[in-house]
Design a protein around this nucleic acid. Sequence first.
DNA 1: TGCAAACCTG
DNA 2: CAGGTTTGCA
Length: 774
Amino acid sequence: MDSPTDLFEDSAPPIHTFAPSDLPRVHPQARAGCPAPAFRPPGFPLIHHLLQPGGGTRRIGPPLNTNLSSHRQLEDRHLEEDEGERDGQVEPGMDGEDEGVIEGEDSLLGVKKRHNDVTLTAEWSQDILKVKRMKLEGRERGGEAEEGGKRREGGRQGRRREREELKEQLEEARERLQALQEKVWRAFGEKHLAEEEKKRKRRNGHSGVGEGDLAIMEEEDITDEMYDEEDIDSGEIEKESFSLLSASPFDSFHKRKEDLQKDKGGRMERGGGGLRLEGMIEGSGLWFDCGGLVRGDWDGAIEDEGEEGGQKFAQALKLELGSAVARVIDRVLRLYTEMTDFTPSSPNATISFLPSDSGGDGGKEGGVWMGLLTRGRVGEMRGKEEKTGGQDREKGKQKMNSVGPLPPGPPHRSEPSDLPIPLAVQKSPDTRKTYPLLGPPLSAHLNPPHPNLSLHHPSLPRPPPLSHPPILTPPSQTKDPSSSSFHPSSSSSTSSSTSFPVPPPPPPPPLPLPLLHYSMQQLFSRSLHHPQLSHLPPSRKDYLSSDPFLEFSSHPSFPPLPLLGHLDPSLGRHAHGGRERDRGMRGDGGIRGGGGMDGGELYLTAGGTQEGLSPCHLKKAKLMFFYTRYPSSNTLKTYFPDVKFNRCVTSQMIKWFSNFREFFYIQMERFARQAVREALTRDGASRLGRESQLRVGRDTELFRILNMHYNKSNIYQVPERFIEVSEVALREFYSAIWTGRDSDPCWKKGIYKIICKLDSPLPDAFRLPGCPVG
DNA sequence: TGCAAACCTG
DNA sequence: CAGGTTTGCA
């Protein structure tokens, strides 16, 4: 029943850190009890992904946090939830990438639509003028008419008729307003306008407008309440997070809300809470001040409303409104053109992201993301990471001590208590049954925060009974891995220290590569079509990673072609050549990856997929190996959405993983044999040494080698899970060698069997093209 | 027998 | 890392 497999599958999510899908998906609006208007657009589709804290997805949480106010930081889960909700709203049941694609298309459509909307807006401006005029007239005359009419009884008949007309006009105006509101909602986002409208109406209402307007006000109050609710829930998030940009429409929107209580100004102050992305998108303020501007003009106009002739005023207002609307249109157009000409390669848009040492496995240990770092800060932050890394490593060590049983000591050692008890009997898949378990797991005190986040994988072998407490690596090893580079034989023995070459210094810290903010990546990636993304197995969608960023520094298929020219003409040419090649020079069978494509050759297809495998794909595959040693071809297809799979590509990729495994097992065997040798040459007091050799901490030589192989640039945080799996493998090898099972020609099979069950789901970041950075 | 994975070699 | 071969399984 509790076979390791089952247990593992039950606890497969340990790496799975936090998935919005785990959380109740309650849309803020649903919570507010106000269904979204049917016509309600997703927001600001075009700029949405730039303004969305998470670029429209929920995996941007960490960098967001840097900008969140403290209470928000505590609630980043809710944040993700809310963002997930937004996703759900856009396209229920789709995950971030899907949403991104859809939304991207939506945005593209939106551009067209909005260009049409320019006409619409012109129309709208006319309507607005009309309405405005009517209202003013109504205010001027109708107000008088209502009260003054009573006072000055027996007023002129013309006036009465006028009033009648005015009422009709007001009715008409109301209808028009509603229609306009819809239009504007579509064009600019309803929030923006609702605020304007509401304010305008309020003023009108205060001036004693007709019933029609009151009715509208009621409507809008409801709407506004809805927004208020939303603002309290998710809008607050937006407000905070949008402060990433100097002045987003949301910013102004919320700002204006606040302005009701306090003076406007200090718009920038909001962003002061955390790391700010200075100038990330310069000129964004330009785009979105239109709302305030319009309002201001209207305010001014309304203030000017005097007792002078309505005609005169209407004229002036007309001019004012006309120019204001023109400016609005201008800005909107500008917005779009800026979006179209968006140049991510601008220095200000070059942002590097580096996660902190979050303990790997997808950041479940609450690593602090250091988003929005400029190049210059990467090293600095990395240094910080190095400092804090020790603690994590310490934690990791505790975990690692709990990972598996300590293989028995040499049979001929004078330690009867830990003598030849095989680590695992190959016939039995249930490793726990084969291991002596005389005490609770050493990690019992660690109290995993969540059953599914158990630090101790149930399927992992339990620690054997030890006559002494768990051995933690000496501080010298934990604190400065760079200096220790733990050698498997260095802990206790000098005799075998020559068995392995002295390791070179550990790989340098991740290079400050120009990484793009995820939102920008989204911007790009939405231009790509990832047909496979929409066919992702739902089960896989549940696993979300904390790897919200992708590395695009070297991804050949990224950014998409239309943008390549902006980034680097040579890239554009390159890609173009790829297309040509794709047309004829290279058939399906001619794919050769790896070294054959070291130049980063591209074989882009029209659909944005690539018919060959690039070095970047290889890199990604290696990172994937941290999670899955035995990926199915389906998995590969899922996680390489930019690769056009055919038999050849698939087998090549399978071959890659075969090679990865080979390397992995060779290292395991090598270090296991080394450990056995060590054990045989040590005296009984050095059990510590053996234990040290059978762990794969981040400070060990084995880890260094593995990391060098699969994560050469050291740009990815090796998940803790991989370390655990490695440790299991190492101990299995050790056990098999120790007990002489290695004389069996297929002695490794049992180990393979064990290891293949320890595959974990891949973080969602791997679904996107490019190499995740974690 | 076909396939997948391991194994071996360059 | 890839090509070729071997092995084991369904």
